[in-house]
Design a protein around this nucleic acid. Sequence first.
DNA 1: AGCCTGCATGTTGGA
DNA 2: CCAACATGCAGGCTG
Length: 885
Amino acid sequence: MMGTRICMNALCGTGATQEWKKGWPLRSGGYADLCFNCGSAYENLVFCETYHLEEPGWRDCYLCHKRLHCGCIASKSVLELLDYGGVGCSACSMTSRLHAIQRDEIRNGFCALRINDADDLRSSSVENRVVGDAADEGKLSQLCRIMEANEPNFLHPSLRSDTSVSNVQDTQEEVRRPLGEVGIGFSGATQPSVGSPKFNKPDSGRSMLDIRDTHESAQPSLNMTLGVSSGGSNFVLPFSNESTDDLKELSKASPPFQQGQRSRPILPKPPKYGLSISSETNKSATSQLRIARPPADGRGKNHLLPRYWPRITDQELQQLSGDLNSTIVPLFEKVLSASDAGRIGRLVLPKACAEKLLQAYFPPISQSEGIPLRIQDIKGKEWVFQFRFWPNNNSRMYVLEGVTPCIQSMQLRAGDTITFSRLDPGNKLIMGFRKATNSDETQDAHTPVLLNGTPGESSLSSTTQNLSKVNGYSGLFQTQKGSNGDISCCKSANSGGRTNEDSPQQSAPVTEKKRTRNIGSKSKRLLMNSDEAMELRLTWEEAQELLRPPPSVKPSIVTVEDHEFEEYDEPPVFGKRTMFMARPSGGQEQWGQCDDCSKWRKLPVDVLLPPKWTCSDNVWDSIRCSCSAPEEMSQKELENLLRAGKDSKKRKIVDSHKPAPECEPSGLDALASAAVLGDNAGDSGETSIGATTKHPRHRPGCSCIVCIQPPSGKGKHKSTCTCNVCMTVKRRFKTLMLRKKRRQSEREAAAEIAQCQKDDNDNHLKGESEMNGSTNNEAMNTNQSENGTSRKRSQAEVVETSNGQIDLNCHPNREDMQIEEPGLSIMSLVEAANMPLENYMQPNGGLGGLSSCLLQQANGESERLMSDEGFLASVGWGQNQEPNI
DNA sequence: AGCCTGCATGTTGGA
DNA sequence: CCAACATGCAGGCTG
C-alpha cells in the first residue's frame, strides 16, 4: 500500500513525500492521502486558495466576504449553506449562531457552546485538519488561547464547525449549528470581520462552551458546535471569578440530575464539559478541562459511544507529552465494571474500541484465540494481555484477558476508569487509569499525573485539581451523570482561585450523588464502596430473624395444604436480635443485649424484644433492670454465646446453598449434594459451596451430576451399576475417602473433643473447655420459631432406636442436626456400605434415609467408622424418628 | 473445590 | 428494536 500511495490532490499526485498527511474525509471512509505540502495547505485552510483559485465555485461569505470555494470537498467544512441562501464561512455562521444562542439562553437561562464530537459529524463537513497527530490532542488549550488572543470575547473563528447533530446522548435539546472553521494551532486563521458577540459570559446568559475535540489515531480534529442546554445539566463549567454568583444561581436552578433519564451506574455517559469563556477567563483553563475526545474514525456501526471517549485534560496531555518527550494520543477509556475488576481477569473491551484497536494496530483477528497485546502502564511496566473475542449474538465480544495482575497493580476497582492511549512515536499502547471519586479523598491529590492516571482523581476532581493546582484557576463548575456523569451542577471552590484540595467539601456532594446513583438503578451492577457493602451483609435469614409480628395485631390463620400460616394485615416490624443458648440441663435461655451498656441479659425464651432495648426495659429481672447491674453471664459463657451466633450464621450460609427441604430432592440429588457438601459440611462454612452446587437452570442436555441422574426408585441402580452417576459418585467416594484418611488425625482430635462433650453433657458439667464450647454453641442456636421449645438434642441424646439401629434420620438442612465432624462424611459411609444407590434414598429424598440406610447396610464394612465415637458423638441424631428404610 | 474457558442471557441505551 | 455489554452459567481441567 505504501508503494502505491499518491497524493489525492489532483493537481499534485505525487507519490513521494517526506510525510503523508490526512486530508478530507472520503465517502468510503478514511481520509484523503495528501503529500506534505498539500496536507499542510489543507491543514492551514489554504488548500483551495492554493490549488483551486482558478476553478469555479468561489463565492463570498455573506458577512465577512471571505472567499469560499463552494462545492469543493476540501472546503466543505469551512463553509455553510445558509438557510436563507448564500454561503457563510464558519466563523460568521458561528457568529450568527451565537446570536441565536444568546437569544436562546436568555430564554432558557442556560446556554452551552460545545466543541463537539466530530465522529458523527464528519459526513457533513468535519475534517481533520489539525496540524499533526502529535499536536492535536493537546491543541485544545492552544485553540482557546488563540481564541482569546485574537478575540478575547469570542471564540476564535478558526475553530471549525460541524453541521450535523452529534451523537451526544443527552436528551436535552441542543442547537447545533455550524461554527466557524478553526485551524487549531494555525496562525493564519481567518479573523472574523464582523463584530463578535460577547461570548458565553455567564452573567450575560449563562452560556457555556462545551468542548470536545475529535481525536483520531492519526489525525484528530477539533470540532465545535453550539448547543443550548435546556436542562441546565451535564456540564463542567469553569467559570470566572465574577461568575461565581451566577453559577450559584444556576446550580440552584438546575436540577442536580437529569430527570426521567435512565442512568447507567457504572458506565455513565461522559459529562459534557462546558467552558465558560468570559473575558476574564483564564487562558489555561481550557487546557485543564477533562475533555471527552472521541476518536474520529469511528462512525456508523463502529462509532464509539461517548462514554468511552478518552477524557484527559489538556494539561495532562501536555505534561505527558513533555515528560515522555513524545505524544500521547488518547484512544479510549472505560469505567471498570465489577466483572472487569473481578478475579476473572477479563476486561470487556467495548466493541468499537476493540475494533479500532484492531484496525489501527493489529491484523484482523480471525480466530477467537486472539493475539497478545502489549500495553505499558503508567509506571512503564509492560503488560501482555490476550486480546481476543468470542462470538456473541451474531456479533463479537472483545475481551482483554489476564488483566487481573495489572488491575491489582494499579489498585483499581469497579468504578475506576482505565484509559488506553497511544504513545507516539512508536505506536506503543499506554494504559492509564483514573480512580473513581469514591476513593478520591483517600488519595494524594498531588500525585503527579501520568496519562490520566492521577491517583485519587476522578474525571471531575482531577480537572478541578489540575485547574487549581497548576494554574490556580478560579473555579470549575461541574456536573456529571452517573459515576462520571449525571449532572449535578456543583460549584467547586469559590471565586478566589480556591483549589479543590482547599475545599474538599466541594467535591463531596458530587461524590455522594454519584454514589447514590450508582446504587440506585441497577442493583446487579452496583458500585459500592466497602462501607456500603458492609451494610448489606445482613443475610436474608438474619433479616427474617429481626422481623417481628406487628404489635397488638392478631393474625388470622390461613391453612394452605395443611399448613397453617399466620396472616397479618400490618407489615412486620423489626425487632432486636437475641441469642439463644441451651442449658445443659435442658431447656433454653434467651439473651438480649442492652443497647446502652451492651450487657447481655437473660430473657424469657418467648419474648420478642423491640428494636431498641435497654436494661431498663428488662421487666423480667428486677435485679438486672439497670445498666449498673453486673452481667449475669461469665466471660466464657459470653464468648460461647457470641461464637455460637457466628457459627450459626456460617451454617446458615452453608445451608442456604443446600437444596431446600421443600424441594424434596431425589435421593440421588441429595446424594449429589452430599457428594459436594460431603465432608465439608462441617467445615465451618469456610468453603464456598454454593458456587459449585447451584444448578439454578438445568437445560435439556445438561450433563451435570444432578441432571444426568435417572429417575429415582428402587432397582435402578445395582451395586455393580456402572452408570455415569454411580461411577461419578464412586470416584468421588474414593477421593473423599482419601481425604478422610488424611484427616485422620483431625478426626481423632475431634473425637476426643466430642467425647469430652458427651461426658460433659452426661454429667451436666458446667465448666466447659474452650474446645467443647463450640459444640455447645450448637445448642444455643436453636430455632426461635419452634415456640421456644428446644429442638436441639444434646450430644448425650445420640440414641439408638428401639430396634437397635442408629437413627440418622435428621434432615440435612437442619442446622442443629448437622454432621459436625469435618473429616467424616455420609459419602464415606456410602462407600463403606457398598450398596445400591437408590437404597440411600429417603422417601422424601432427604439424606436421612440415606444416612440410616447406610448405617444399616454398612454395619459390617463400616464398623470402624461406626465405632468412631467422635463421629457418633458429633452427629446430631434425630430423637424420635424411625428409620425410613 | 476451585479455577478457567467459552458461551448464553438479561439488561440497557441508543438508533 | 437491536446492538452492546455485564455477568451468569456450566463443562473441563487441575491440584
